[in-house]
Amino acid sequence: MQVSAGQLRHKVALQARQETRSDYGEVTLDWTDVASVWAHVAPQSGREYFAAQQVQSEVSTRVTIRYRDDVDATMRVTHRGTTYGIEAVLPDDGSGFDHLTLMCSEVTT
C-alpha cells in the first residue's frame, strides 16, 4: 500500500529527548523538534479506565508519515497542541521504505 501526498494533510512535529548541561553542571532533559513533517493522523480508539482510584483517559492514535530512518519509540509527536508518545514504529508491509505507521498514545502532563 502506498501513501499518496493527498493523504498526508496534517503537519506534525517529531520530537526527541535532548540532554543539556547548565553552567553549574546540572543535567536537564528537554524535548526538541527533530523535524516537521506531513502526516495522516487518525484516532484509533478511546477508552476510560480506573487506575489508582482515578478515572484516566487513554487515546490511541495512528500517525502515518513518509519513511524516515531516524524515528524510534523513544520519540514523540505533537499535533495541534496535543502530544503523543510513540509506542511502536511500524514500516509499511511492502518494501518497508515507503512510509511508517507510528502507533501513539496521548501524553498527559
Rank of each mutant, 00 (worst) to 15 (best):
T32L: 05
S4N: 11
M75A: 06
T109E: 15
V41S: 01
Y67R: 11
A16F: 05
Y49A: 05
T109P: 14
D93K: 07
H99L: 01
V34M: 01
W38G: 02
A73K: 08
D23S: 02
R17H: 04
E48T: 14
A39E: 01
T78P: 07
W31A: 02
A88G: 04
A42R: 14
D30S: 15
F50C: 01
S4F: 15
E106N: 01
Q7G: 04
T20M: 06
Q2I: 13
Y49K: 04
H99V: 03
Y67E: 09
G96Q: 10
S45K: 06
K11F: 10
V12N: 01
Q54G: 03
D23W: 01
G25D: 02
M1V: 14
P91T: 04
M103P: 00
F97Y: 14
G6T: 13
A73Y: 07
G94T: 08
S60V: 05
K11A: 14
D30N: 12
Q15L: 14
C104A: 04
Q56I: 06
E58W: 00
R76S: 02
R80L: 15
T28P: 01
A73V: 07
V55M: 15
G96I: 10
V55S: 13
P43Q: 13
R17E: 10
E87R: 13
T101M: 10
G94Q: 11
Y67P: 08
Q15P: 03
D23P: 00
K11G: 07
A42G: 00
A13L: 10
A39Q: 02
Q18F: 03
S57P: 00
F97A: 12
A42W: 02
R76I: 02
D93P: 05
V59Q: 14
A16W: 05
E26Y: 10
A5D: 13
Q54L: 09
Q7M: 09
H79D: 09
S36Y: 14
A13R: 12
Q56E: 11
D93T: 09
T108G: 08
G6Y: 12
R68E: 06
W31N: 02
L14Q: 04
I86V: 12
G46S: 07
L102S: 09
R21M: 11
G96L: 11
A13F: 08
T82K: 10
E58L: 12
L90S: 13
A13W: 06
I65C: 11
T64I: 10
L102N: 09
F97I: 08
Q53D: 15
T20W: 07
A88C: 04
L100D: 02
G46D: 06
S60P: 00
L100E: 04
T61S: 01
T78G: 05
D98G: 08
R62S: 15
V55A: 14
V107K: 07
Y84E: 03
Y84R: 04
R66Q: 14
E87I: 08
R17P: 12
L14R: 02
V55F: 11
Y49Q: 05
S36V: 13
A13Q: 14
V71F: 04
V3A: 09
T109H: 11
G81R: 06
S4D: 13
Q18M: 02
S45D: 12
Y24E: 06
E87Y: 03
V41N: 00
D72T: 05
S22V: 01
S22N: 03
V55K: 15
V37S: 03
E48R: 13
K11C: 08
V77E: 07
R66W: 11
R62Q: 15
L8T: 09
Q56N: 11
